[in-house]
């Protein structure tokens, strides 16, 4: 570790002042190799400033570990859920309206279907279900015309 000054206290490698500096955090976090760790340990043995700073950093960390996790502000979570619900409803409503509008537009502008009147069927309907004072003559055409048979 180039950032760990050699034992004996030669200032320099890590901080501009020759102390461990940020190397202390690496040491506490176990990020140093065994050689670097040994070098740092040798520096600490001879440098009361870095040893005190290491103690300070370690205490601070322990203090922080003992604190409760931060809590969100009052109403933050319900507000977040409410916003999520509103967004979901909005998206669903817009999708539904878009679908209905698309169906309406399709229905309204779609061209009329071609119609071929089923004349034979109409003739049979007329002959067999038109009120008449003479139903026999009215129905006779349906009885004689094979083309009127469904």
């Amino acid at each position: 570790m180039s950032g760990v000054p050699p034992a004996g206290g030669r200032p320099g490698a890590s901080g501009a002042d020759g102390h461990l500096g940020d190397g202390l955090s690496s040491l506490l976090d176990g990020e140093l190799s065994s050689a670097e760790m040994a070098a740092a340990q040798r520096h600490l043995d001879g440098c009361s400033t870095c040893a005190d700073e290491l103690d300070e950093v370690e205490r601070t960390r322990q203090l922080l570990r003992g604190l409760d996790p931060p809590k969100p502000p009052e109403g933050f979570v319900p507000g977040l859920l409410l916003r999520h619900r509103r967004l979901t409803f909005f998206v669903a409503a817009v999708s539904m309206i878009a679908g209905v509008v698309a169906a309406l537009v399709f229905m309204l502008i779609s061209p009329r279907e071609d119609v071929t009147p089923p004349v034979n069927r109409f003739e049979r309907i007329h002959a067999t279900s038109t009120p008449s004072p003479d139903p026999i003559t009215e129905m006779a055409p349906a009885g004689v015309a094979p083309s009127t048979v469904p």
Binding site: R124, A127, T128, S129, P135, I136, E138, M139, A140, A142, G143, V144, A145, P146, T148, V149
Partner: peptide, 13 residues
């Protein structure tokens, strides 16, 4: 009900 039959089939009204 009056029914009329024949080759075209029987129809009633």
């Amino acid at each position: 009900v009056v029914r009329v039959g024949g080759p075209g089939g029987a129809h009633g009204v």
